[in-house]
């Protein structure tokens, strides 16, 4: 248990965390903004990775490969959105169905269960072999994505999307097409997840049909850690998104530290589940203890201010 080993491993954890941070922003859009737990992402991450790697194999430049991954994510989100809004399938189940189908799609794209890609032969944007470069590049992606989302959710369309998640009844009464917004949100979310998948495939040097399994839990972990730790200081929307990315980084650093303590990586999934459960419980308890005070304040202001 050399501390130097841990320190050496930390940049790698940060790199991974940043990539998963992009994925977590996608989860944030569905889970926090639309109030939907979208399980499509478990399939979409692999779809993104597979699309990116195969396009690179086919000789396309790396930005085309990443755009391809992004587009594949849009498609996956569209399907879940249509299943949910046009066919009346509950969002959770619609996501599970798409994810299930994506397994076969991903096998087709990959022409097998996995494909590797070598940074020596292909012009990859990032690779775990050059961790610090990867960190800078992915950080740039994160900044651009947050900036674009910050702009988007400030537009009339974006505000309508937020309202659709916050109060669908009110949104319809104000003439907002809630179903359309749900579809747009699901598409955007899955596109970001697929983009993260494309980056992850390059970073780790392969795409695997199994690479997305459980990713919804990691995404949720990042969202919940970010919101729980930073919600008091980060109120601005862009900062909240940044908090989510920081949540993903913290998650990977914690994981790295745990494995440094010599805990078998087989336990990683269980530990993740425990982390998510603890943080969910913390925000629930915070709500429970905060509520009486809030209620009192509301009653007081009702008495005092509305005369």
């Amino acid at each position: 248990m050399e501390i130097a080993n841990l320190l050496n491993a930390l940049p790698g954890a940060v790199g991974q965390g940043l990539i998963w941070g992009i994925m977590a922003i996608g989860v944030f859009i569905t889970y926090k903004i639309l109030d939907i737990a979208d399980l499509t992402v478990d399939g979409t991450l692999a779809t993104g990775g597979a699309t990116c790697i195969m396009l690179l194999h086919a000789g396309f430049p790396v930005w085309v490969a990443l755009l391809g991954a992004f587009a594949a994510g849009l498609g996956a989100g569209l399907i879940t959105g249509l299943l949910h809004t046009c066919m009346g399938i509950p969002a959770l189940l619609a996501g599970i169905l798409t994810q299930y189908a994506l397994w076969s799609v991903n096998l087709q794209i990959l022409d097998g269960a996995n494909q590797s890609i070598s940074v020596d032969k292909y012009p990859l944007l990032i690779s775990s072999r050059y961790v610090s470069t990867a960190i800078w590049i992915v950080a740039l992606f994160v900044i651009v994505i947050i900036a674009v989302l910050y702009w988007f959710f400030g537009t009339s369309l974006g505000c309508g999307l937020r309202a659709s998640g916050a109060n669908p009844n009110m949104s319809r009464a104000q003439g907002i097409n809630v179903n359309l917004n749900k579809i747009i949100g699901l598409m955007l979310s899955n596109a970001l997840v697929a983009l993260a998948g494309g980056l992850l495939g390059q970073y780790q040097g392969f795409a695997d049909v199994k690479m997305g399994i459980g990713s919804i839990v990691i995404g949720l972990a990042a969202v919940i850690i970010g919101e729980t730790l930073f919600s008091r200081i980060f109120r601005n929307f862009a900062l909240r998104l940044l908090g989510v990315v920081l949540g993903a980084i913290i998650y990977y650093v914690v994981l790295q530290t745990i494995s440094w303590f010599g805990i078998d990586s087989d336990f990683q999934k269980m530990l993740t589940a425990i982390i998510v459960a603890i943080f969910l419980a913390v925000s629930y308890w915070k709500g429970r203890f905060a509520r009486p005070a809030k209620k009192r304040a509301a009653v007081n202001s009702a008495k005092g201010e509305v005369k």
Binding site: T155, C159, Q174, I176
Partner: peptide, 16 residues
Amino acid sequence: LALAYRRGKVRGLGHG
């Protein structure tokens, strides 16, 4: 209020 102000109008990418 901004949501209500756009009732019956196209909600596009125009800024807030």
